[in-house]
Design a protein around this nucleic acid. Structure first.
Length: 560
DNA sequence: GTACTGGGCCAC
DNA sequence: AAACGTGGCCCAGTAC
């Protein structure tokens, strides 16, 4: 990696596809064209200088480089950057934002399995013909330069692009996953692997018990409508088959039915079929979709990586002689809320470690549980239950923090956009919003139309209310990971990154590093230092703490 | 056969 | 405790 980093400005090299191979265009100096076979070698050599690679799409270029054994330091992902600049309130006046929708506004290409070609550069639909990366890069630089706050948007774009590299690297490295351990867990919970078309023994037993106790021998538990009818025949009058509703009903058959639902869910979502499909060569490799959620959170596709149930996390086992360092940002979103609002009282409440306990200690709310639901309610827009009821108390104690989310909600209700700390902006409401508002105030206005309009506007307000917090938390997490990536690279010396401590998993406010045992303590230190870096990147000198729980474990199930 | 929707539930 | 944000995935049921 670049030894000059921080002292010399990086040289940008724009990467583009050409019929003869790949064109590398430095900001100044001669362009060069290399054949595809030489591309990876050339990138390796040039990246040793202080280079920032500018390319249309990291998912197009980087997996091939990694396969060829080449890792890079930094990049500009033009597609991801374009999406941010297109919508950001900070660049709304730019030529880029005002231009017609074009090839740079398309979603990323579908992931394709390697088909022998090292780099899949050809676009079947020919959409890349007018997508000149040099011209786009110039437009983006102009948008940044003329931005209302170039520093913020620059930090956001850097973090997003770093995220793109990390996503590709995590997929390449994979989360260690022991199929044999997973199957042992399944056997313990469900019974031995069943023959195709049969239910696992424990599930069959729970169903048999339910049928017997209900006295409905042909109860079909897998169709909600059928189940509801079956329950009625057995004398259980339920309005839905949701577990939390069934829990409220007292009937001897309910416990075994809940057991059935729990186990059947595990078997269908993360059972033997999941292992067969998603675990290969001792690794689980989800496809991370950077910026895949409107708020800037990552999405994933394949294997449900964002919803791995706690029951099977024990199958993520570090390699022999290695450890998993699992780090989790405690109460991230409420802390983000306090920091971005500049609410020093709420920041102070979190300083001692437990923000909810700090709120109770301040006298604002009576119990920790109430503090928690009130604060979550403030971020989600609760109107009922404890959350809704306690919110006014919270607003009196922390007016800055609460008015910030209230303002975001009102803006959304009016159909305006809102923005995160670094300048990612929410989309405008869709046509439904406009139509309903028109209906409510137009010639055919009536109370029902007004209700519909108000209800839809409120719902959009809950979205914008949550957007600023969830989106800023996503920015914090990106900065955290990006800083950690640099720090781990420093630790690794000349080792290839998968032979040294490296990121293998990320989940909104939690990350996992796979590391040789000897490095584990240093990794834990770097994870904490990176969290402090992220706090400074977003909030400067504001003395806000982002405490982590860090666990060094043999398997993911041992963490928290 | 494929495409889509709603119910349900997992994660944060 | 249960209605208040963001998602993905599985399944059953339905439309074509």
């Amino acid at each position: 990696m670049s030894a000059q980093e921080g002292r010399l400005a990086p040289v940008h090299i724009v990467v583009g596809a050409a019929s003869e191979g790949v064109v590398l265009r430095p900001e100044s100096g001669e362009s060069e064209t290399v054949c595809r076979a030489d591309f990876a070698r050339r990138v390796r050599v040039l990246d040793a200088e202080n280079v920032r690679w500018v390319w249309d799409d990291t998912t197009t270029w980087y997996p091939g480089l990694l396969e060829a054994g080449v890792r890079i330091g930094r990049c500009v992902d033009l597609r991801l950057s374009h999406a941010i600049l297109r919508n950001s309130a900070l660049t709304a006046g730019s030529e880029l934002a005002r231009a017609a929708v074009g090839p740079w506004d398309r979603p990323r290409r579908e992931h394709r399995e390697p088909d022998g070609a090292l780099f899949a550069l050809d676009d079947e639909d020919g959409g890349k013909v007018d997508a000149d990366p040099v011209a786009e890069w110039a437009l983006q630089q102009d948008a940044i330069a003329t931005s209302a706050d170039a520093g913020r948007i620059q930090r956001l774009l850097a973090a997003e692009s770093a995220g793109a590299l990390i996503a590709a690297e995590m997929r390449f490295a994979g989360m260690p996953w022991r199929a044999d351990v997973h199957e042992e867990l399944l056997a313990d919970l469900l019974g031995p692997r069943p023959k195709p078309g049969e239910r696992p023994a424990r599930i069959e037993a729970a169903l048999g018990e339910t049928r017997r106790l209900l006295d409905v021998p042909d109860l079909n538990p897998d169709s909600p409508a059928e189940l509801l009818k079956g329950l009625a025949r057995g004398g259980v009058l339920a309005t839905s088959t949701r577990s939390w509703e069934l829990k409220k009903i007292t009937h001897p058959a309910i416990p075994s039915l809940l057991e059935y639902k729990k186990l059947a869910r595990l078997a269908s979502a993360n059972g033997w079929n999941w292992v067969d499909t998603w675990v290969e060569g001792g690794r689980f490799r989800p496809d991370y979709v950077v910026g895949g959620v409107v708020t800037g959170r990552w999405a994933t596709s394949g294997g449900g990586a964002l919803q791995l149930p706690k029951q099977i996390r024990g199958a993520a086992v570090a390699d022999a002689g290695w450890k998993l360092v699992v780090a989790d940002a405690a109460q991230l979103e409420p802390r983000i809320l306090a920091a971005m609002a500049g609410d020093r009282d709420m920041v102070a409440a979190g300083a001692a470690g437990d923000l909810y306990a700090g709120i109770v200690a301040s006298g604002a709310i009576d119990t920790r549980e109430h503090a928690k639901v009130a604060l979550l309610g403030a971020m989600y827009g609760a109107t009922q239950g404890d959350g809704g009821r306690l919110m006014p108390q919270l607003a009196r104690a922390y007016p800055k923090a609460i008015s910030m989310v209230e303002d975001a909600a009102r803006a959304g209700e009016r159909g305006e956009i809102v923005s995160t700390r670094l300048g990612r902006s929410s989309p405008l409401p869709g046509t439904t919003w406009r139509e309903l508002q028109d209906d409510a105030y137009g010639e055919d206005a009536n109370p029902a139309a007004a209700d519909r309009a108000r209800s839809y506007a409120r719902s959009w307000g809950r979205f914008t209310r949550n957007f600023i917090v969830q989106g800023t938390a996503a920015e914090w997490a990106l900065c955290w990971m990006a800083s950690l990536r640099n720090r781990l690279t420093e630790l690794s010396g000349d080792l290839w990154f998968t032979e040294a401590p490296h990121l293998v998993f990320f989940l909104h406010d939690e990350l996992v590093v796979h590391t040789p045992e000897a490095f584990a303590d240093r990794v834990a230190d770097e994870v904490r230092a990176a969290a402090a870096d992220a706090g400074r990147l977003l909030f400067g000198a504001l003395p806000v703490e982002f405490p982590l729980t860090v666990a060094t474990v043999d398997n993911y199930g041992q963490a928290k």
